[in-house]
Design a protein around this nucleic acid. Structure first.
Length: 718
DNA sequence: AGGTCGGATCTTTTT
DNA sequence: GATCCGACCT
């Protein structure tokens, strides 16, 4: 049995999880303990042992990437393709269910998925429709409210307003928004989950069908599930299914989005026949890094409890650098990356992690200056770009005239003389008659209730869409997109935009055609028309920001997007009070613990080298701040940390922390006051080079800014 | 109907 | 300081 490739590479705990006979299993998987591996091997094990057929397996993740990786690794392990399994994201699987059972779910067959951008616009329209002041009732806040409620599984009718006027109004907005979505066949992300839940809850026959099919339900990142996802899982699990949930309460960093760590505790209550397996052996990081991470997270209360260990080496000390300012901090990190590269390391293996995306700027500047290639993760996704969404809106409307979000988006883009007055008439008619914007437009024109100019322009738009719909019939997907781009007039419109921007956009439209050409129908979604499948794909899988450049480059990302990844050489920058932990989280103990978990996630990304840094002054929002070093730094055992200083003595955080001179052996510290025989008093601005070649830039009170070779300058510290 | 200006805002963002 | 949004102007 141990010769099986499925079990052979596993340690005892992993093997116990993979081969468990318990009907319900909760795997507490520490960072780097082989979480994905256990999921993959568990599925392979069930298949190989004949405990399950592929079609009996439902495996749920949070990201498309994780789902794709899981499927690929299962097939690799079994050395054959495995059809019939449902492996996907919560949203992807919910979507699939709703497509298959749109009637029971009370959706139009052509329903479309909205991203949060679209959603905000529909919310805004709902607010205006209720004649509310949108400065007081901010669309963003209402959107937040609606999503939070949906994440909790609450419809407007479920919310007890208890006479609270504000709450009452929010619920009214929620209701109006819901009606608008229903009319237009629009489904937001939270709605996908809620609908899928209600579909099963309210259609017992259907639920039974799926319960009988999915005998094995597996969940990744269980600590990130929200209330509705948990309820959905309980439904499908029923009394019979084997449930296999993998998660780490210490890596729960999405509570602000409705994720509920308590679901791990609830699992133990709701699935009484469960078994718990702890994966604590870490295969990623050095002993020092793990000890630091363990010590940090021990400051949190309410943990399920876990202690990571490794039988690998202690590794190097964790480095802590106190920058003179944010620019110096970035400069230091980039220099360490260059050292790494000079010693034969790859840029790819280096990651700069930060709390807020705004921090990437300074790092990027420093990298560019040093000519080090880099890549920023997160940010704008391909399918979220305005021009891409514009083009897709044409396709959406041609596909389904009732799509109000698409209608609003392009009715006057490019400008075709349909002004706000006209549109308000259309909107009002739609609202009063409870019909779609499209139908309202048709009606207004037919009843001659518009000025002749407006009516003409509007009719032209309607005809354009109708013609487009006709012309794309029978075309391939890429020809369809090509035609849409061409007929929409978007290219001409963007050509008029000045500067690079317009060109960029036209390029992206071309890229969209390429994306359509490369698009393949998901194997099991054969029933869905190609165009619908592509539109859903665009909404559910927004794609990476930049087209993948394959150059060896330093990776930049927020701590949130670093979860699940690992790098040999990690830089955790901006370790400052106010920034990390963030001010907005400092007052609430729960949020503070989440910040600490975020820090834990950051530390545990590192395999070999870990550098922490902070700046003594930082430019933020146009003003200078002088932050204190992060409290998290004080929570790290001082014997694991080595503070790096550019010459000169400066108080370490903890008197026991070792202080070492920078390896460059700089004799001065940035910001240090110095004295020169001829130039007089000055302040050190920059240091570069090493050893005998060290050069120092000094701003002299009398002589201005000068570069000097340290060895000959004869500078004296003041 | 589009451009410009002033003001508010400034955490994280799997889908 | 940068950006995003809406009001206002042309």
């Amino acid at each position: 049995m141990s010769t099986s490739p499925i079990l052979a590479p596993l340690n005892a705990a992993q093997r116990a999880a993979v081969t468990t006979g318990a009907p319900q299993t909760l795997v507490l998987a520490g960072a780097g303990s082989g979480k994905t591996r256990v999921l993959v091997h568990r599925i392979a094990w069930c298949l190989e042992q004949g405990l399950a057929s592929p079609s009996g397996i439902l495996a749920v993740t949070f990201t498309n990437k994780a789902a794709a990786e899981m499927r690929a690794r299962i097939e690799q392990l079994l050395a054959r393709p495995v059809g019939g399994m449902w492996v996907g994201t919560f949203h992807g699987i919910a979507h699939r269910l709703l497509r298959a059972h749109w009637r029971e779910a009370k959706l139009p067959e052509q329903f479309q998925i909205m991203d949060s951008d679209d959603q905000q616009k529909v919310v805004r329209r709902a607010i205006r429709g209720l004649n509310l002041d949108e400065h007081h009732w901010l669309p963003k806040e209402a959107q937040w409210f609606i999503n939070a409620r949906k994440d909790e599984g609450q419809r407007p009718a479920h919310i007890d307003t208890a006479g609270d006027h504000v709450l009452q109004t929010m619920v009214e907005i929620y209701k109006a928004y819901e009606e608008a979505c229903q009319r237009a066949g629009l489904v937001d992300f939270a709605e996908l989950l809620l609908r899928a839940y209600e579909l099963w809850r309210d259609t017992p026959g259907l639920l039974r069908h799926y319960q009988e099919r999915f005998f094995h339900v597996l969940v990744d990142e269980f600590q990130d599930t929200n209330a509705i996802q948990y309820a959905w899982l309980r439904l499908i699990a029923g009394e019979r299914a084997h449930v296999f949930a993998v998660g780490d309460d210490d890596q729960s960093i999405y509570s602000w989005r409705g994720a509920r760590v308590e679901n791990m505790q609830r699992f133990r209550r709701d699935f009484p026949r469960h078994e718990i397996v702890r994966l604590e052996q870490n295969y990623r990081s050095t002993g020092n890094i793990l000890d630091a991470a363990n010590a940090l997270i021990a400051n949190n209360t309410a943990r399920l409890g876990k202690n990571l260990w490794t039988d690998g080496s202690r590794g190097e000390a964790i480095k802590l650098y106190a920058g003179y300012n944010d620019i110096d901090e970035a400069r230091y990190c980039v220099e360490r990356v260059r050292d790494w590269h000079r010693d034969g390391g790859r840029f790819d293996d280096c990651a700069f992690l930060y709390r807020t995306s705004a921090q990437s700027r300074v790092l990027e500047d420093a990298l560019r200056q040093a000519d080090v290639p880099y890549r920023v993760h997160g940010g704008f996704k391909f399918y979220e770009r305005a021009e891409v969404k514009d083009a897709l809106a044409y396709l959406r409307l041609a596909n389904f005239r009732g799509d109000d979000a698409a209608f609003e988006r392009i009715v006057n883009l490019p400008a075709r003389g349909i002004g706000n007055r006209t549109l308000d008439d259309v909107r009002q008619t739609a609202r009063l008659e409870r019909i779609t914007l499209w139908d309202a437009a048709v009606r207004l024109i037919a009843h001659r209730e518009l000025g002749s100019r407006a009516a003409g322009a509007l009719q032209q738009f309607l005809s354009l869409i109708d013609e487009l719909a006709h012309e794309i019939e029978g075309l391939g997907l890429d020809s369809t997109i090509e035609l849409v781009v061409e007929r929409s007039g978007l290219v001409d419109h963007y050509r008029k935009e000045k500067g690079e921007r317009g060109l960029d956009r036209i390029e992206n439209l071309a890229e969209l055609v390429t994306a359509a050409r490369d698009f393949e129908l998901p194997e099991d979604d054969g029933e869905l028309p190609l165009v619908s499948a592509f539109l859903s794909h665009a909404a559910l899988e927004a794609g990476e920001g930049q087209a993948g450049s394959f150059e060896d480059s330093v990776q930049l990302m927020t701590l949130h997007s670093a979860k699940g990844l690992e790098f040999a050489n990690v830089f955790l920058v901006g370790m400052e009070e106010g920034l990390f932990p963030h001010t907005r989280s400092a007052s609430d103990p729960n949020q503070l613990e989440e910040e600490r978990r975020l820090c834990y996630v950051g530390l545990t990304r590192a395999m070999k080298q870990l550098t922490l840094s902070y700046a003594e002054s930082r430019r933020l929002h146009g003003t200078d701040y002088y932050p204190q070093p992060s409290r998290f730094l004080r929570e790290l055992p001082s014997n694991l940390v080595e503070q790096v200083r550019l010459g000169g003595a400066s108080p370490a955080l903890d008197p026991r922390t070792r202080v070492v001179e920078d390896t460059n052996g700089y004799p001065y510290r940035l910001g240090q006051r110095v004295h020169h025989r001829t130039f007089g008093e000055g302040v050190v601005l920059h240091l570069e080079g090493r050893g005998a070649h060290t050069r120092v830039q000094v701003n002299f009170a009398a002589g201005g800014v000068k570069w000097l070779v340290a060895a000959y300058a004869g500078l004296e510290a003041d």
